[in-house]
């Protein structure tokens, strides 16, 4: 565990807490893509299957449970909580997210480190996480007015990705044989998509209200 990894995890945790805060206290999910949140729930469900087979640390297991619980509860709130569901931008959130799942599954079956059930699903979760933000990106471009909490959520998610890349660079130089091409390329693609997000985020603050 290095400082970049810890900071990355804490930033990721903070992003989820900001989103839960918005949903819980303001009872609003305006500007939040349910499709992206559903993809994240699938990402964590398929990646953390190893919670039953491998133990890394109490920290790891605890964080896995937090991300699993929070992602599924966010989806539950947006789908089934009446007041929250009413604020959902259903007409705008139309990205065909299932069209992302199938290509990621095929890619994971073709390109992986080991052909085992858990390993292929773990690889699938990496590919899917890389593109899971796309429905949110499309929704952001359509809604134009994003509130502070949604903006902070996106900002923190992007920070988490950037810090993970610093973590990989650090680990590459400090740990022998730390080479994970699949993780790195998927992570890099994901970070580049977030860079696009940041572009809109800063436009929002520099240009005042709307994103043009």
């Amino acid at each position: 565990m290095n400082i970049f990894r810890l900071a990355g995890d804490m930033t990721h945790l903070a992003s989820v807490l900001v989103l839960l805060l918005k949903i819980h206290t303001i009872k609003s999910c305006a500007g939040v893509s349910l499709r992206t949140q559903e993809l994240y729930a699938i990402v964590f469900a398929t990646r953390y299957l190893d919670i039953f087979t491998s133990f890394v640390s109490v920290y790891n297991t605890f964080m896995k449970l937090v991300f699993l619980g929070s992602s599924f509860s966010i989806v539950w709130y947006m789908r089934y909580h009446k007041a929250v569901h009413r604020t959902y931008d259903r007409e705008q959130d139309t990205f065909r997210h299932w069209f992302l799942v199938l290509p990621c599954l095929v890619l994971a079956l073709l390109i992986h480190e080991k052909f085992t059930f858990l390993e292929v699903l773990w690889t699938f979760s990496l590919y899917l996480e890389a593109v899971a933000i796309l429905p949110q990106l499309v929704l952001l471009q359509r809604t134009r007015n994003i509130d502070n909490l949604t903006g902070q959520y996106i900002f923190l998610l992007g920070g988490y990705r950037g810090l993970y890349i610093l973590n990989w660079i650090y680990r590459y130089f400090t740990e022998p044989h730390f080479v994970h091409w699949i993780t790195w390329i998927a992570g890099l693609v994901q970070t580049l998509l977030y860079a696009d997000f940041f572009y809109y985020y800063f436009l929002r603050f520099i240009g005042g209200r709307g994103v043009e």
Partner: peptide, 10 residues
């Protein structure tokens, strides 16, 4: 080496 040991990130 241990098959899943390298998945120590979240």
């Amino acid at each position: 080496h241990d098959e899943y040991h390298e998945h120590d990130e979240l």
